[in-house]
Simulated assay, not measured.
Amino acid sequence: MNCDVVLARKRIFVPGSWVRLTERMNDPYTPLEKGLTGTVRYVDDIGTVHINWENGSPLGAVLEDKIELI
């Protein structure tokens, strides 16, 4: 993992920020659909954005997942 990418994600997705999933996650077993919103808990050292989603899921968003600040 590129340290610059991780540091950028930590600056962008600060704890308490609201985010929206802009595309369905590429995982057939996830309950997370496009448009779902949640609150950022933290970004870990590999760049995963850990989020408390409005549907109750605590699933993290990896680099391939498309999220945006709202």
Rank of each mutant, 00 (worst) to 15 (best):
E33C: 09
D45R: 12
I70K: 10
R20W: 03
T30E: 08
N55E: 04
T37R: 15
N2C: 05
V6W: 02
T37G: 09
E54S: 15
V19H: 01
L36W: 03
I70T: 12
D27K: 06
I51C: 04
G16T: 01
P58M: 06
V40S: 05
D65H: 14
V62R: 14
F13D: 01
N55M: 01
E33N: 13
G38H: 01
W18H: 12
R11F: 09
T22G: 01
E68F: 03
M25L: 14
M25S: 08
K66N: 07
N26H: 11
M1E: 08
E54T: 08
I51P: 03
Y29N: 14
L7H: 07
M1W: 06
V62Q: 12
E64T: 15
H50M: 07
C3F: 10
P31Q: 10
N52W: 04
F13I: 04
V43Q: 08
V62E: 10
T30S: 15
G16H: 05
V5K: 14
V43S: 08
I67R: 02
H50W: 15
D45Y: 09
P15A: 05
L21E: 06
D27I: 06
M25E: 10
K34A: 13
Y29I: 02
D44N: 15
G60E: 05
K10V: 03
L7A: 10
I51F: 04
F13P: 04
P15D: 05
P31E: 13
G35Q: 09
C3Q: 11
P58N: 13
D4C: 02
R11S: 15
N2H: 08
P28C: 04
I70P: 00
N26M: 12
T37K: 15
P58W: 04
R24Q: 11
M1K: 09
N26P: 00
A8N: 09
D27N: 15
G16K: 04
F13V: 03
I46A: 05
D4Y: 03
G35T: 06
N26C: 12
D4A: 11
L36S: 11
S17G: 04
L36R: 08
E23H: 12
V5L: 14
K34I: 11
L63V: 11
V5C: 04
D45T: 09
D44R: 05
